[in-house]
């Protein structure tokens, strides 16, 4: 048997294309640090929107934080909300246009700190939209200050000796909190640091959009545990490893609420 002599240039042609960045991401260079999970999260949301053929019917809401410029990168209709008010804005848009697919994209400072009231009340009212929550345990944009989601003992620029729980309080597991509310329909926690996790997260986002499309009566909440290598002062690969070792035990991955019922972990 003789192996065909195939060179790289023979393989690189449109008929052999397996994967390329979706056209729903603009060609602008992302404003994120090298290795930041935001870029991957943006891209998989846009891939889901493309695959479900709802480009014209989707409206995204950008937060305040690192991803404030999300509307520059996602090539769909977008709004930019005041700090933490994305769920309130999403409520307004969804009630005005019930047929549109609405999602908010928020970080932990936006969703779990200044926007806690909006988040909890939107979840409790059971608004029919999707919240994508990026949790990296730090205020990334303003220089790595301690956030509500910062782990106990974790160093940040405002907790240089590590978060002292007695003095600074406990980290907030807002995803578990909203899962307790009767208004949420689907609550899950995922990550985007490995190919397998990216695929799982994409499936979760697809499920959430399907629930919204079928008007299952409840809010869909997808948390993505992510890294902040600049804020954590690590290289991107080290930050991902640190996240697996430290973030995941505190923020375990998996579905928390499926079809309106809490998942029994035991």
């Amino acid at each position: 048997m003789k192996e065909e002599n195939i060179t790289t240039t023979d393989i690189i042609s449109d008929e052999n294309l397996v994967y390329k960045k979706t056209d729903l991401m603009t060609d602008k260079t992302l404003s994120y640090c090298p290795g930041c999970g935001h870029g991957t999260a943006h891209r998989i949301i846009m891939e889901v929107v493309e695959e479900m053929d709802m480009t014209e019917d989707t409206i995204g809401i950008a937060p305040v934080g690192c991803s404030v410029l999300a509307y520059e990168f996602m090539n769909i209709d977008m709004q930019q909300a005041a700090h933490g008010r994305a769920p309130a804005l999403a409520t307004g848009i969804k009630r005005t246009w019930p047929d549109k697919m609405i999602f908010t994209y928020q970080g932990d400072g936006d969703l779990a700190a200044i926007g806690t009231a909006e988040t909890i009340h939107a979840c409790n009212r059971g608004e029919n939209f999707l919240i994508v929550f990026i949790n990296n345990g730090i205020y990334g944009m303003t220089g790595g200050q301690m956030a509500p989601t910062t782990l106990p003992g974790m160093k940040s620029s405002t907790s240089p000796y590590g978060r002292d729980v007695k003095l600074m309080g406990n980290p907030l597991k807002i995803t578990e909190l909203v899962a307790e509310l009767p208004g949420t329909y689907y609550v899950t926690r995922q990550a985007v640091h490995t190919p397998a996790n990216v695929r799982k997260t994409k499936r979760a986002i697809k499920t959430a959009f399907k629930n919204q499309m079928e008007n299952k009566g409840g809010l869909n909440f997808v948390e993505i545990v992510s890294n902040c290598n600049s804020g954590w002062k690590m290289s991107p690969v080290d930050a991902n490893n640190w996240m697996v070792e430290n973030m995941f035990p505190f923020y375990p991955l998996g579905d928390i609420k499926l079809d309106g019922e809490k998942v029994n972990k035991e």
């Binding site: 393989i11 397996v18 994967y19 960045k21 992302l30 870029g39 991957t40 985007v192």
Partner: peptide, 15 residues
């Protein structure tokens, strides 16, 4: 590689 690339700079072909 393309799936985890945060900036989506990799295009993949297979034959």
């Amino acid at each position: 590689c393309a799936i985890v690339c945060p900036d989506g700079v990799i295009t993949v072909y297979r034959k």
